[in-house]
């Protein structure tokens, strides 16, 4: 909620880091240790650094809203109601007999050490069973990295051209 209200973007980014860390703790409580570590390092770490870097290059203060945002508010509430209706029909929490726990996961858990030799099932699935997925993921990061480089290189070249223009 405070994220929606805060207008100082620096405080907002700090709050975002805290939020990410809380989320990592919640994931830890849900047995997702690998995801928790990733969230703590990527969400609370890298994202915060990226946001701070952007703040350094732009403004720290948000302009006050010029008009009342009624339509987005209504839209968000409608979405929330629809989501509540949707989650009401999800299976109960922590129950091992729900369909998602009986289909693919037991096979991974039973055979993972024999087939891959890696005791961490998450790592084994990520790197071994679904290595192509991870390759695609790496491609996404690579593409994003190229995009950032292209965008920021043009930015750096532009002032230099201006300087040459004024000098001559």
């Amino acid at each position: 909620m405070a994220i929606a209200r805060l207008r100082n973007l620096f405080a907002l980014v700090a709050l975002g880091g805290i939020y990410s860390f809380m989320m990592a703790l919640a994931l830890l409580a849900l047995d997702a240790v690998d995801v928790s570590m990733t969230e703590a390092s990527v969400g609370a770490g890298i994202s915060t650094v990226l946001l701070l870097g952007t703040l350094y290059l732009t403004h720290i203060h948000e302009a006050p809203p010029t008009r009342l945002a009624l339509f987005p508010l209504a839209m968000s509430i409608v979405t929330g109601v629809a989501l509540l209706y949707g989650v009401a029909h999800l299976p109960p929490f922590g129950d091992p007999s729900t369909p998602m726990h009986r289909h693919v996961a037991p096979r991974y858990l039973n055979d993972v050490v024999r087939e891959t030799g890696v005791p961490n099932a998450v790592t084994a699935v990520l790197a071994s069973y679904r290595g192509f997925d991870t390759l695609g993921e790496a491609t996404v990061i690579f593409t994003a990295g190229i995009g950032v480089m292209v965008l920021l290189r043009r930015r750096r070249r532009a002032p230099r051209d201006d300087k040459q223009g004024t000098g001559s």
């Binding site: 690998d34 990733t38 099932a121 998450v122 996404v140």
Partner: peptide
């Protein structure tokens, strides 16, 4: 053991999310 499959999917999602954020 808890189910490892959602963990794998969300690991991918986190990394793609930070790539989106960077861009």
């Amino acid at each position: 053991y808890s189910n490892p499959l959602p963990h794998v999917l969300i690991l991918t999602a986190i990394v793609v999310g930070v790539a989106t954020l960077a861009l």
